[in-house]
Amino acid sequence: MWWAVLAASVVVLATKVAGHLVPRALLERPRVVRTAALVTAALLAALVAVQTATGGGALALDARLAALAVAAVALLLRAPFVLVVLLAAATAALLRWLGLP
C-alpha cells in the first residue's frame, strides 16, 4: 500500500511542478484545456457510480443509493461540502439501523 501511496503522490506532485516549469504554449491549447476538464468530470462521475452502486466486483444496490440521492438534494440546496457528506453518511447509517443492506 505504501508504494501506491508514494507513487501516486509523486506523480501528482510532478504534474504540479511540470505546470510551473514547462513553456506556457505547450499546455495552454484550448483542446488540451478542454480535454483536461472533461477527464476530471468523467473520473469523478465514474467514481460516484463505482462508490455508490458496486461492491466486490459486481453491481450492488443498497443504502448507499438513497444516501447519494440525499446528497444530491443537499447540493441542489447549496449545502456546504461537509454537510453533504455528513447527511449522506447519516442516511446510510439510519437505513442500515432500520435493517436495509
Binding site: A4, K16, G19, L27
Partner: peptide, 28 residues
C-alpha cells in the same frame, strides 16, 4: 476510493494522476 474498491497500484496511480492533471494547467 480506488484502494477501497480493491484496485491495484497501477489503477491507484493512474486515477490519482489523471485527476491531478488539472493542477498542471493551473501551474501554467
Amino acid at each position: 476510493g480506488v484502494v477501497g474498491a480493491g484496485g491495484g497500484i497501477g489503477a491507484v496511480v493512474a486515477t490519482a494522476g489523471l485527476l491531478g492533471a488539472r493542477n498542471g494547467l493551473y501551474g501554467v
